[in-house]
């Protein structure tokens, strides 16, 4: 872990992984779309609206997975003070917010034909909305202080506190009566959906995960460059006799 926390090592690794992640994302998304839209059957109850599952469910998994990554990175940042952990969490947050927004919108579009309503304040939907606000709060807090270190620390604490919402989202359909159906893929006794639907769903999920990995690597690289630029500007300012003389 500490080897990867070195920004130079991370850059080298990310240069090697990025093309593979991008290629895998393209392949999996194309194959998942093809199977999901053209070859998988409609549902016996929901009909063709079940095809929304192939974007809604992977987005929801990513929304939860990215928040878990942010909480983990925040823990590493607070305990071991790895600067790269803060950079990774900061780079992942807008992506996680995007996946959560996607979950909410596609869920609403799936809810209308299935339940007859766009939105209901039940445990699953409300806890996912809270997750979206946690992402927004995390991003806002990162940028709320003139002192960047204070912002990073406050946001990391919020990320860790907010992590309590992740198991609530996962188990909300078991703990409370909700309109949302219970889990049908990640279950102790195995998936309950047919392989003709499971295959495109898993391909889309792999595509979303690879897409996230590629974007995360791009964003971390971008953040490391921004730090380098800031450091160079400080060095230039310190060396400038006009500025130094003031």
């Amino acid at each position: 872990m500490s080897r990867l926390a070195n920004p130079n090592r991370f850059q080298k690794l990310s240069r090697r992984v990025l093309p593979w992640a991008a290629g895998l994302a393209g392949l999996c998304l194309l194959a998942g779309l093809g199977l999901g839209l053209f070859f998988s059957p409609g549902d016996y109850q929901q009909g063709e609206s079940v095809r929304i599952m192939y974007v809604h469910v992977p987005a929801a998994w990513m929304a939860l997975g990215v928040y878990t990554l942010i909480a983990l990175a925040s823990g590493l940042f607070l305990v071991w003070k790895y600067p790269l952990a803060d950079i990774v969490a900061r780079a992942a947050a807008p992506l996680g917010a995007g996946f959560t927004l996607l979950t909410l919108v596609t869920g609403s579009l799936w809810g209308k034909p299935t339940w007859g309503t766009w939105w209901v304040w039940d445990a699953r939907l409300t806890s996912v909305l809270i997750l979206f606000f946690l992402y927004l709060g995390y991003i806002a807090l990162q940028n709320a202080f003139d002192d960047g270190a204070r912002g990073a620390k406050s946001a990391a604490v919020l990320a860790l506190i907010g992590f309590v919402n992740v198991p609530i989202i996962k188990w909300s359909v078991e703990w409370w009566h909700t309109l949302h159906q219970p889990a049908s893929v990640i279950r102790l006794d195995g998936p309950s959906i047919h392989v003709s639907m499971l295959a495109p769903l898993l391909l889309m999920a792999a595509g979303f995960a690879a897409f996230f990995t590629a974007l995360l690597l791009i964003r971390v690289r971008s953040a490391l460059l921004a730090r380098k630029i800031r450091a160079l500007r400080l060095v230039q300012a310190a060396a400038d006799p006009h500025i130094r003389g003031r």
Binding site: G42, G47, E48, S49, R51, I52, V55, H56, A59, G98, F99, L101, L102, V105, T106, L109, W110, K112, P113, F211
Partner: peptide, 19 residues
């Protein structure tokens, strides 16, 4: 989409817009 096109296509459109 068997009468569900108004829900399915906006879902896919929004997904690829966000990505």
């Amino acid at each position: 989409m068997d009468g569900h096109g108004a829900f399915v296509w906006p879902a896919y459109g929004f997904a690829f817009l966000v990505l």
